[in-house]
Amino acid sequence: MSKSEMIVQAPGISLGQRRKGRLAELLKTLWSYRVSYLFIAPFMICFILFILLPVIAAVVLSFTHYNSIEPPRFVGWDNFRYMLTQDLILMKHALPNTLTFALIVGPGGYVCAFLLAWLISILPAVFRKWFTLAMYTPSLASLVAMSIIWTPLFSSDRIGYLNHFLLNLNLISEPVPWVTSKDHLMTSMVVVTLWKSMGIGFLGMLAGLLNVNPEMYEAGKLDGIRSRLEEIWYITIPATKPQMLFGAVMAVVGAVQISEIGTVLSGMNPTPEYAAHMITTHTDDYAFTRFELGYATALTVCLLTIVYLAQKLCWKLFGTKEDE
């Protein structure tokens, strides 16, 4: 029986004395692990200052009217009520565009990252680093650098590289407005984002694939595995679940948070007929143009909820179970 249980069960001790005994026992336990707390202190301080406190502040401000000049004024659920019933641009354009874009780019970029990582992992080591560098470098490019590459390619006139190529092949009869038309802007955004999506999640999956024990593949062949596809399904994916989970979370978060790519490609803000208007773009509009910071933080809380639900789905798919 522990000392704290003896204190609780001892007869004739008042409730105040029991609480003091529990507190003393807790402080003694905390003090015994003081060295461990020193090791985690840098991470905890950064987590509290730069993640926990901003999230709490955003949740609190989402229930206020705040314009950065006057003190915040509590308005209850008015921001969320306005979001659901009166913000037509959000419901008609920003939310559907964000979900559509995330559902295409998130899984699409994730599958492409895994396939490319697997193809690179089976290459000889002398070529592997160069292909990895070629795939990873686009993720480091800024939006300005991207515009230098993609704007001439998607130019809507005849001298645009893509239109010129398709016209010469007689695949189209007139130039296609790739980034100035509502019907084509989302497609152009998806292509550019997939090109840029081989980031840190791609490197994580490649590292996981390179560290799979080769003996597992030999054992699989003895157990009846006869094709590369069966190796991937029965050995590679189960052996790299932590990296697969990390890559999935990074892909979903990156797809949901992207905002300025449509504005950069089209050169318009807002984009043509709100074709590339996202929740993050909508948030920037209310925060930095209209200075309605209370409503803008309510939008960020909504986006945070979407990302959290997507992360829970990724954990369900790739999280390690207790028996694994």
Rank of each mutant, 00 (worst) to 15 (best):
S4R: 12
L26C: 08
T29R: 15
A41M: 15
F47M: 12
V55P: 01
A58V: 04
L61V: 03
N67G: 00
P71S: 14
R73E: 13
W77N: 09
Y82H: 13
L84N: 01
D87Q: 04
L88F: 12
L90V: 05
K92G: 02
T98K: 04
A102Q: 07
L103M: 12
G106M: 01
G108N: 04
G109L: 06
F114K: 01
W118Q: 09
W118R: 13
S121G: 00
P124Y: 10
W130H: 10
Y136G: 03
T137V: 15
V144E: 06
W150P: 04
P152S: 09
N163W: 06
L167G: 13
N170D: 11
S181D: 10
H184N: 11
L185W: 07
T193G: 05
L194K: 00
K196F: 04
K196N: 03
V212G: 04
S227H: 11
E230C: 05
E231T: 03
E231A: 14
T236V: 11
A239F: 07
K241V: 07
M244E: 06
I258N: 01
I261G: 02
T263W: 12
T263N: 14
E273W: 10
D284I: 04
R290Q: 13
R290C: 07
L299N: 07
L299Y: 09
Y308C: 13
K312E: 10
W315M: 10
L317S: 10
G319I: 08
